[in-house]
Write a protein that binds this DNA or RNA. Structure first.
Length: 681
DNA sequence: GTACTCTGCGCC
DNA sequence: AAACGGCGCAGAGTAC
């Protein structure tokens, strides 16, 4: 059986902004047009298709119908959306099932490479002359279209010709990429297909509610922004300028304008968000600030509220809602190097938790939403408090279940302390995993170790908090300085006490865990530095493969470290301790940057990756058992089952079932569910 | 204008 | 003797 490989690449024109709308809504827009489709077949550049070209169209139709032709694109979701929404209904092409699509962006994601076509090609040294003139031409046409969508002038034939050339160059680069990267192995291909199903299903957003929130925010922000401008002459977002202004107006020098710095500077009178953590000061110790001049205090208070960046989710959500009320393409397969999904469009993975004025106020989401849909800012202020903070706290309720077509609900569950449990299991710290499996609190146990006496959650709240921080934070080689900065300072602990907590974890509570750090560090070093063929520890096997070092996990999946290199590195704890080490190139904000490997980092990678594999396995089971997945948030799965047979206990059952490798590792999983008509925390 | 970096902030 | 991990996005500021 011989499979054929077609690589298609569209050039399109639309008044819709792709980065805002996402591929689906972009393709749904009746004003979006296909200018041309360039393609290669088994590596050969073919004649491009332009709309209504019957000859090339017939060839494409045959390939679309052929069950043995595989379609490959870079970010296939785009090509798929154009095909489904334009090529099929407008030009009569047959649909192409998901099973016949592949995605080089998915391969790039798995391999730790940049996701952008050009940066990815560059990292792999695939020759790819960028046609910046061609892309500028397409951008220009689109700008003109945005300006006058009702009266788009005809495109001159020579321009179409030039764009087709550009499109051909792109498709050749994409074809080269197909050959430069290994394809997804079968297990990951299935995860990607699952990802495509989830992204095409989309998540329902409550547009009237989002618009109501936007009205409240606009109403509340306008007077604040005006007052702020009258006071300072600035916009609330001008960070450096505001810092300077504060100093000029008699305030002590503030290190930054982070929320917690402001909270501390403003003192307890500022009735604002308090999450119990102290700000980090890069300057030695915190500047003790006395009472601020009233103008400065007022300006900073406004900045704190009006600067809530999460309200930007409102326009982001509105921008990508499709015709049926659902947003598609909100998660990216393998967006993180460890395989976790990353958020896209309105970034559904970082909705604020209810805080501040709403903290401890347990509203039924539907009641709160119904109220906000009709209320003016003044009424919100009178009933619940600061309108902005109320909206921020209710933002996640914009995600809803479909009640119109089939009555559905949202049913979700998250894995309890999944990473803390996985690191203990992988390290073979079986007394502690047994403790967790039996339902006892590891924090009380850790507390007894640190403090040398039994503690209780109720009577020793600060000791309890310390042990919780230790259990959750110390699995990946966190040091005393970081521990102090992050937890100790806020709890009034001295550096010595922090050091004791850390050593209580490493020496007494989970002594197997430092052995895991060391074991993974040594194994990876043997391969990446000493060029040993392979080395294994705790079921994780490192190996050199082409331009990568891979780590085969107990789940069978591999992590890919791109371009591992020998180097020398100063240890962080003392200046003149310089050792042989290795580094690799990692994707950071779409670029590649060197990252220096050490045991704690490798441990974290492996553990986060295994937690993701537990998630993916659970997602497959959800899909199979009538709980369609609409969102994944690292340790949480949100599903949208039919109300008639949605049962949170059943979802817990589904999530708690382990794949064979998870049972072998004895990972003690537990899941905590909720059910309702709206996303909640 | 466009691309890039930095700061700040939300989440797990 | 022992290491702050993983993301996306908005806006400001800077360089070309």
């Amino acid at each position: 059986m011989t499979f054929r490989l077609i690589v298609p690449d569209f050039e399109t024109l639309s008044p819709t902004e792709l980065s805002v709308a996402g591929a689906w809504r972009y393709a749904e827009d009746p004003a979006t047009e296909v200018l041309c489709l360039a393609w290669t077949l088994d590596g050969q550049l073919m004649s491009p298709w332009v709309p209504n070209d019957m000859v090339v169209g017939a060839a494409l139709r045959a390939l679309a119908e052929d069950p043995e032709t595989i379609w490959v694109a870079h970010n296939a979701a785009f090509e798929k959306a154009i095909w489904r929404n334009i090529m099929v209904p407008r030009y009569g092409f047959p649909p192409i099932p998901n099973s016949r699509w592949r995605d080089t962006m998915a391969s790039a994601a798995m391999l730790g490479l940049p996701l952008g076509l050009d940066q990815c090609a560059q990292a792999l040294r695939v020759p790819n002359q960028k046609d910046s003139e061609g892309s500028a031409l397409v951008r220009k046409l689109n700008r003109q279209y945005v300006k006058s969508p009702w009266d788009r002038p005809a495109i001159p034939p020579e321009t179409v010709h030039r764009i087709t050339e550009y499109c051909e160059r792109d498709v050749i680069a994409q074809t080269d990429l197909v050959q430069a990267m290994p394809p997804l192995p079968p297990g990951e291909l299935n995860v990607w297909l699952l990802d495509q199903r989830v992204n095409e299903r989309g998540v329902r957003l409550d547009e009237p509610f989002i618009r109501a929130c936007q009205r409240i925010v606009d109403g509340a922000i306008a007077p604040m922004a005006a007052e702020f401008h009258a006071l300072t002459g600035l916009n609330v977002t001008q960070t450096q300028a505001l810092l300077a202004w504060c100093h000029e107006h008699g305030a002590p020098k503030l290190p930054n304008l982070q929320k917690l710095t402001l909270r501390r500077a403003l003192g307890p009178s500022a009735a604002l968000i308090d999450d119990g953590e102290e700000p980090e000061d890069d300057e030695e110790d915190a500047v003790e600030v006395g009472p601020l001049p009233p103008d400065v205090a007022r300006a900073l208070t406004i900045r704190m509220i009006a600067g809530s960046s999460s309200i930007k989710k409102l326009p982001s959500m509105l921008g990508c809602i499709g015709r049926d009320g659902r947003a598609r393409g909100a998660v990216q397969y393998h967006g993180a190097a460890t395989g976790r999904w990353a958020g896209r469009l309105f970034q559904p993975q970082n909705f604020p938790r209810p805080v501040g004025v709403m903290e401890g106020v347990h509203h039924d989401p539907e009641t709160l939403v119904a109220f906000l849909k009709t209320a003016e800012p003044d009424l919100v202020q009178a009933v619940l408090g600061s309108p902005i903070e109320v909206v921020v706290s209710a933002l996640r309720h914009a995600i809803t279940a479909d009640r119109e077509h089939v009555r559905r609900v949202l049913c979700a569950a998250d894995f309890a302390q999944i990473e803390a449990r996985t690191v203990l299991a992988l390290a073979g710290q079986h007394d502690k995993t047994a403790l967790m499996a039996s339902g006892q609190s590891p924090y009380l146990d850790m507390g007894a170790t640190i403090f040398g006496r039994p503690i209780s959650k109720k009577d020793d709240p600060s000791e309890y908090q310390t042990s919780k921080n230790t259990v959750l934070g110390c699995g990946f080689q966190m040091g005393k300085k970081t521990y102090y900065d992050r937890y100790g300072k806020a709890n009034g602990q001295t550096m010595e006490q922090c050091e004791e907590a850390i050593w209580a974890y490493r020496r007494d509570w989970a002594p197997q865990v430092p052995k895991l750090w060391q074991g993974l560090e040594d194994a990876a070093f043997d391969v990446a530095y000493r060029r040993k063929v392979s080395a294994e520890f705790a079921g994780c096997e490192y190996r050199l493969e082409d331009k990568w070092m891979t780590c085969r996990l107990p789940s069978g999946r591999k992590l890919w470290y791109f371009s591992p290199q020998q180097c020398r590195k100063a240890m962080p704890w003392v200046k003149d301790d310089i050792r042989d080490a290795w580094r690799f190139l990692a994707r950071k904000n779409g670029r590649v940057r060197p990252v220096y490997a050490y045991g704690g980092l490798l441990t974290e990678n492996v553990v986060q990756a295994l937690a993701r594999d537990l998630m993916a396995a659970a997602m497959f089971r959800c899909e199979k058992n009538g709980y369609p997945v609409v969102l994944t948030v690292h340790d949480e799965i949100v599903t949208e089952p039919e109300e008639a047979h949605a049962d949170p206990a059943e979802l817990v059952q589904i999530m708690s079932e382990l794949p064979a490798w998870g049972r072998a590792l004895q990972i003690p999983v537990a899941a905590e569910p909720w059910i309702g008509t709206r996303y909640q925390k």
